[in-house]
């Protein structure tokens, strides 16, 4: 009898890249539901468009690079990138915005650097940064929470689709009338004009903890993050250090002058803080590899995010903080190499 020869270990791995990506997508479900509750179905349209664009650009790039197309398309990483981009663009957006975001993420950030596993930068954040730098107007046309009694004009699904496809709204709606800046935007602009935090936060977009609606999106995103932690898809180091460092900085400045600085809860529960902590900064390819390195990486992202939000030119700094720290990863990895067993150092 003849048996095949294989190399040890003779055991199947316990997980796989597609399984990880699938769990990441599951973990985004709660925040998506809350997102739809507050901001309407626009995010679904963006997700759909971005996913299609991401898959097509992935296939084209794989073809150009002479790589097998099927396994890489099936691993789901392109979809995760696309979904994260859909989260970061306004629900009311023309179709080419998610298309450009997703395709530039896949082409520029992923495949020009050598495909999955070789990208230095987080693809979703590169896509978002390119969109934000290129189309500042479209990227800040956010609609207010679609809840009755807030005094905003609501927008239905049909109008959203129409706007996405044609770039124009039904005649009874006016783009400038139905869109607002995000809470972080308003705070940034208001502080520049000498308005105090208290005055700013009395506006209708604000609630007790943060921006109206945003707080719940962030909290439900955190539930998804806890699911990922529970499933062992991510480790606690990056989210915990990121959130802790942003809280510490916010608390310090808030205690110093609560009228000029936002409260820690506002920083935690607005913008992309929680999404970034659990889903973006934890992207393994572009994050630090060792646990110690991840603590440094996460804490630095938190500090940079706070710095950019407070003193920088853009309302939310998480994307830029992640991209900047992506650059530092090789250095962090180098200085956090664990001591090898039995080797004196």
């Amino acid at each position: 009898m003849n048996f095949p020869i294989n190399s040890s270990p003779h055991v199947l791995p316990i997980t796989s890249v597609p399984i990880i990506m699938r769990h990441v997508l599951y973990a985004l479900i709660p925040s998506t539901i809350v997102y739809v509750w507050y901001f309407g179905f626009g995010i679904f349209i963006n997700m759909l468009i971005a996913s299609i664009a991401a898959l097509i650009s992935e296939a084209i790039m794989l073809r150009i690079r002479n790589r097998p197309i099927k396994p890489s398309l099936a691993d789901g990483s392109a979809i995760v990138t696309a979904i994260l981009i859909a989260f970061s663009i306004p629900p009311l957006a023309p179709w080419w915005l998610p298309v450009l975001g997703a395709s530039s993420a896949i082409v520029l950030a992923k495949h020009l650097y050598g495909g999955i596993g070789a990208n230095i930068f987080n693809p979703a954040m590169v896509g978002y940064a390119i969109l934000l730098l290129s189309f500042p107007v479209q990227m800040t046309h956010w609609i207010p929470p679609q809840i009755e009694n807030l005094g905003f004009q609501n927008i239905d699904l049909w109008s959203t689709v129409l706007y996405s496809v044609t770039g124009s709204l039904p005649s009874n709606l006016n783009l400038d009338a139905i869109t607002q800046a995000t809470p972080l935007d308003i705070v940034k602009g208001g502080l520049k004009n000498g308005i105090s935090i208290n005055e700013l936060r009395s506006g209708p977009l604000f609630s007790q903890l943060g921006g109206y609606g945003w707080e719940w999106i962030n909290i439900f995103t955190a539930f998804g993050g806890v699911y990922l932690l529970y499933k062992g898809i991510i480790r606690w180091h990056i989210p915990v250090s990121l959130l802790t460092s942003i809280t510490i900085f916010a608390a310090l400045f808030y205690l110093y002058d609560p009228n000029q600085n936002l409260s820690p809860s506002f920083h935690l529960l607005s913008g992309a803080t929680v999404l970034g902590a659990f889903f973006i900064a934890t992207d393994p390819v572009s994050a630090a590899a060792t646990n110690q390195g991840r603590l440094i990486y996460g804490a630095s992202i938190g500090a940079l995010t706070y710095a950019i939000r407070t003193w920088g030119g853009y309302p939310d700094g998480l994307a830029f903080a992640v991209l900047l720290m992506n650059l530092m990863v090789p250095l962090i990895d180098r200085f956090t190499t664990p001591k090898i067993y039995g080797q004196q150092q």
């Binding site: 520029l108 390119i130 730098l133 290129s134």
Partner: peptide, 14 residues
């Protein structure tokens, strides 16, 4: 209208 990023420094490098 064009993508502003091409005029900004990143566009030059790309």
């Amino acid at each position: 209208d064009g993508a502003l990023v091409a005029i900004l420094p990143p566009g030059a490098f790309f």
